[in-house]
Amino acid sequence: MIHPGKMAREVLTSLFRKPATVLYPYVKVQMPDRFRGKIKFTSPLCIGCKLCMRDCPTNCITITKVGDKQFQAEFDLDRCIYCAQCVDTCPKKALEATAEYELAQLQHDKLKVIFHAEPTPASSPAAPAEHAPQSQPAIGA
């Protein structure tokens, strides 16, 4: 039957359904398991092969040798496209993608993230220290 208002019923029933949208800043969405968020670097696992630097499509990773078998990673998050190719490329699983997705910053220098090398590489495999630099220039740049 051809008549106008074909969707009227759908619209009226939707009035009594719960909203399809999420109140985002108040209600956080759970990311799927395979989500590619901010990249995490585990310094003790890194062997300094720099394959991640070679494969990164945006050249946002800089791996620097800071001591004997000690490496630190520097990420330019303003360039990172979160493809997680570095995670696939890394032969030692020193890089992993986390579920962190709220990465907007008001200050540009906060987008530079440095994962410092551990002082004692063998003893503690815990998450390495991470902070945005204050004012000093990046070591590898």
Partner: peptide, 25 residues
Amino acid sequence: MYAWRDREAVMDTLAALTGNRVNYG
């Protein structure tokens, strides 16, 4: 509104399968 609401179902599926909604990689 309704077409895009229903599209969310396939977007969520893509995110679950590949890890991202748009650039699946």
